[in-house]
Design a protein around this nucleic acid. Sequence first.
DNA 1: ACGGATTTCGCAAACGTTTGCGAAAATGAT
DNA 2: ATCATTTTCGCAAACGTTTGCGAAATCCGT
Lengths: 330, 330
Amino acid sequence: MGQPTTLKSISSLLNISVSTVSRALKNHPDISEKTKKKVQELAAMMDYEPNAHAISLRTNTSKIIGLIVPALSNYFYTSVLTTLEDESRKHGYTLLTLQSGDDTNIELQNLKLCRINHIAGLFIAISPETKNIDPFLKIEKNGVPVIFFDKVPEAENCNKVRMADEEAARMAAEAIQKSKRKKVLALFGNKEFSITKKRSKSFTEYLQKNVPEVNVILSFVSSTQEAVTETEKEIIHHNPDAVFCMSDEILTGAMKAIKKLKITVPQKIAVIAISNGFIPQLFDPEITYIETSGMELGKLAFSRMINYFKGQTSVQELIVPSRYVKGESI
Amino acid sequence: MGQPTTLKSISSLLNISVSTVSRALKNHPDISEKTKKKVQELAAMMDYEPNAHAISLRTNTSKIIGLIVPALSNYFYTSVLTTLEDESRKHGYTLLTLQSGDDTNIELQNLKLCRINHIAGLFIAISPETKNIDPFLKIEKNGVPVIFFDKVPEAENCNKVRMADEEAARMAAEAIQKSKRKKVLALFGNKEFSITKKRSKSFTEYLQKNVPEVNVILSFVSSTQEAVTETEKEIIHHNPDAVFCMSDEILTGAMKAIKKLKITVPQKIAVIAISNGFIPQLFDPEITYIETSGMELGKLAFSRMINYFKGQTSVQELIVPSRYVKGESI
DNA sequence: ACGGATTTCGCAAACGTTTGCGAAAATGAT
DNA sequence: ATCATTTTCGCAAACGTTTGCGAAATCCGT
């Protein structure tokens, strides 16, 4: 049980004060080169590592940045997390990742964990049921930046970073336009989410305006399983020649139905999706999709955080552009 | 910028000492019911939340448990993480999740982060290249339990929790035996990993002993892409009637090749895999697999940690059993 | 050698909490 | 009312660090 070395243990070995050791280790100009050298060498020898808790307590700031997401089983969040963790490490911060499992109570518990650990900043993708974002905004009163991402709230008094939902949906609609398909089954997620609203609105409006002859079958589902049954039903009843899926979960379900019915893609039916970029490549043929890159979002969100640290605290809404990834399904 | 409430602010409002407030809040018997009530009510009103850093500093223990994994893009690790996070929360701990991205240096950086945050315990799945586990074992000298999981080192002086690799491979071999297939393409991962050794040894030994007439084509690949080309090559050259894949990455590659060659599963070729349980269900037909459950591993690992906290510090190697999940591919 | 300027360092308080110990207050028995 | 218990509380130190301020030490020019 060797006690970890502290400023005190170094100072007593060298017969100098704790404060001198502290300053010597951070190259304070008040300390002579000679003692600096002495101290730094001994510290290195003894594997000195500062106690993060003591520093946080003393300075009332920590090097921990909180990240709260609904669930990491979602590949998109994993890629955001990975990027944020990378950037955090490079900037000397530690990312505290917390999953709320789509549970509002756990989400609040996680927020509390962030508070008692006195995080320096917070990234949060709220869970679908979260209506009241006041608890999150509250910590901003203490000078802790809060950046909502992906599933951003509708409120205007908060910082947001999100995907270009309208643009992505429009790009998918354009692809359908070019493919000359005329009867589209458009599958969206939970009708309540703002992301669903934005995507469905943009998608249908583009088609109505630019290709009015296209027949759009709108459908909203809340799970992969629901997507399976819904797709199956719609294909049998209306025989669409194209399917649009607004997410990976929905795409997974739709493809299950299409394979079950043994319909060939893209000959009999074209498929296009909005995706985080992993699932579409698992299918044969590979699915064409509009990529919403978690990495890009992570990078943008982190730079926003850094700017906030630097004083740029006025609210902003940042938007990450989408990308068309060609597959063989349309 | 409202300052957070502290023991001191409560104590001065109530004209009692800080120590009394501290004790009152944790129901210390020395404090009268009357003052307890006063204190607890005011604390609740003022949203008092203890400062984790101060507590850690004072008690020299934290409620943070470290978790270091190679990468969360691996679904298995995500499910382990989720379980560990759940359990941690339920036991009053916070999980500090860190990815090393298969980079030994980052892995050591992450270990350092754990140290300076004075974690209460550490779960670690070492990255493939990690040879020297001494740095990890070192913190155990300070009384911090270290539990290796999944990719456990060969060394014997450490606590391990891992999947039943031999058993899983044997179960797959049994399934092939029952299917009466006679020429098996067996795809394994990087030959250097102990997990690969265990699985390939167990797999081939079972077949040699129990079904000597089966012809096994052994193959080791290091990436999904390599699995694609290798499978393609072997199918063309040797025309196997069954494929075994030891992981999801390999399964993904093998299926790509099989689909490309338009070979029907399971009629022309049977497929069976060892998997973490998400990928196999994406294919048509759904792939039969031996599940290595990250959730089960997480639960076992966490209970091991708790027992260590309770004083059970002697080294153990715990093994999580596997499960046969029937699909339509064999 | 002397005074002043400058370099180099230490003292002490502070961050918020826990806890051993002793003291004050309340209680009980006589 | 007195004394011995018991209950109830406060003092003070400690965890490891940072930092304003003042003091000692060294330097320089004359």
